[in-house]
Design a protein around this nucleic acid. Structure first.
Length: 425
DNA sequence: TCTGGGGTCCTAGGACCC
DNA sequence: TCTGGGGTCCTAGGACCC
């Protein structure tokens, strides 16, 4: 059996764990730039605020009533690590799926004790972190997702719901579950399934896998098997290095200044390079993209991207920034007001098992060693002394592309200075 | 004035080769 | 005048997730 453990309204629950006065209030957490609502408490959902609703379009009455906070990723990331450390005590086999969800192998646990095991897990997480979690247990990941949803919505389960592959309960549940509520089915696929007369999860389970594969893809076929209780989905091992690394941001306000874009692209490239080195990889190409805002009606639109191959695989910020700068120069057009740009590192290879190319041999061991030591020093200084202690190029004060986050709560668990301010201020 | 960010997988179709 | 066909590799873009 597989358990899916999921923190209820994760970002909101993290905020509440440190500010109990938020309990019972309609609370929302906003995306970068305080743009959209990306997490909602039960009370905020009840007010009709949709996931992803743009903040500036919320009715004034709701904005007055609700507590809307900027996102505090340092806090959420740290809380997530704490939760997973606890989960590891309940299973030797934890797959971290996202910041607020993990799959646990529950093999070898007596079916009769599954529920009690799940309840102990819930209580431990609650006691040690203050966060509420729900647990769904089933033979496959897709069914565990369904079970988790039940655990969350039906109070009778008290947060833990086991679901067998073949039972009257399972059939009853799947018959009432719209197919678009399933993990892996969204609007587009839902529309096409509806044309085939498939509206519920149960109908999809009963469909012919070969037919589903022809009409859609192997992904959808696996979903059918999973619904029947046959495991067909492997989750990527999160210990595996990423295949691409992306850093992108919307600007705090639109800008057409080439120097703004250059500064932003350099910063994104530097951040991406840090992520690259953290996972011990080298990149063979750098992609740069930019775009105008799709929202203002009538404003001229432009979006473009370019891939710049590197002469040799590199994790040196100087190489990556240089390539990103060339890429930007190739696609930047004047006369537009840009909303977003980003840098993606592609074609990643392991730093150890790197293949030597002819070109690469030209670079001496000495040069390579020097580059690695320099980058290691930069990363260490930034880690120990704070982000941006060392950076490439000149900092700019008050740049238009700086993020807005006016409503962020203190980083309680990772910054002493901010914690002290809470206590004394 | 203000509309997120970072990933994955899969497929279609073009480029290229013989 | 007639202008192949099949295989492989790669990339862009679609769809989805949290």
């Amino acid at each position: 059996m597989i358990a899916l453990v999921d923190v209820n309204d994760f970002y909101v629950s993290c905020e509440r764990a440190f500010a109990p006065r938020l309990e019972g209030l309609p609370v929302g957490v906003l995306s970068n730039n305080d743009g959209c609502v990306v997490a909602r408490s039960r009370e905020l959902k009840a007010l009709g605020v949709a996931m992803g609703a743009p903040m500036h379009l919320l009715p004034p009455a709701i904005r007055r009533q609700a507590v809307l906070l900027s996102s505090n990723y340092a806090l959420y990331g740290d809380m997530s690590r704490r939760v997973n450390a606890i989960l590891a005590e309940f299973s030797p086999d934890v797959e971290v799926y996202s910041i607020d969800e993990s799959f646990l192998g529950f093999a070898g646990i007596e079916p009769a004790t599954l529920e009690a095991h799940g309840q102990r897990l819930r209580e431990t997480v609650r006691r040690d972190t203050g966060l509420p979690v729900c647990v769904g247990v089933a033979p496959t990941r897709v069914l565990a997702k369904v079970a988790n949803r039940l655990a969350k919505r039906q109070p009778a389960f008290e947060g833990v719901c086991p679901l067998e592959a073949d039972s009257d309960v399972t059939r009853h549940v799947l018959e009432r579950l719209p197919v678009v509520e399933l993990w892996g089915v969204a609007r587009r696929t839902g529309e096409r399934l509806a044309l085939m007369g498939i509206d519920t999860a149960w109908q999809l389970r009963q469909a012919d896998p070969a037919r589903i594969r022809r009409a859609f893809s192997v992904v959808m076929e696996r979903l059918v098997w999973e619904l029947r209780g046959h495991p067909a989905i492997d989750i990527e091992d999160l210990a595996e290095p990423r295949q691409r690394i992306l850093v992108s941001r919307s600007f705090g306000r639109l800008t057409g200044e080439p120097s703004d874009l250059q500064a932003a692209v350099r910063q994104h490239a530097a951040r991406a390079a840090e992520k690259l080195r953290r996972q011990g990889s080298l990149a063979r190409a750098v992609q740069v993209f930019l775009r105008t805002s799709p929202f203002p009606v009538g404003a001229p639109q432009y979006r473009n991207s370019v891939v710049v191959p590197l002469a040799r695989p590199s994790a040196d910020s100087r190489d990556l920034l240089e390539a990103a700068g060339r890429g930007l120069a190739a696609i930047l057009r004047e006369g537009y007001r840009y909303q977003k740009c980003g840098v993606m590192l592609l074609d990643l290879v392991s730093g150890q098992a790197r293949q030597l190319s002819l070109l690469e041999e030209v670079q001496s061991e000495t040069t390579r060693g020097r580059s690695q030591r320099l980058m290691a020093t930069v990363d260490r200084l930034n880690r120990e002394m704070g982000r941006d202690t060392v950076r490439f190029g000149l900092p700019r004060q008050d740049s238009p592309w700086a993020l807005r986050c006016e409503r962020r709560t203190p980083r309680y668990t990772t910054r002493w200075d901010e914690l002290m301010r809470v206590k004394t201020g």
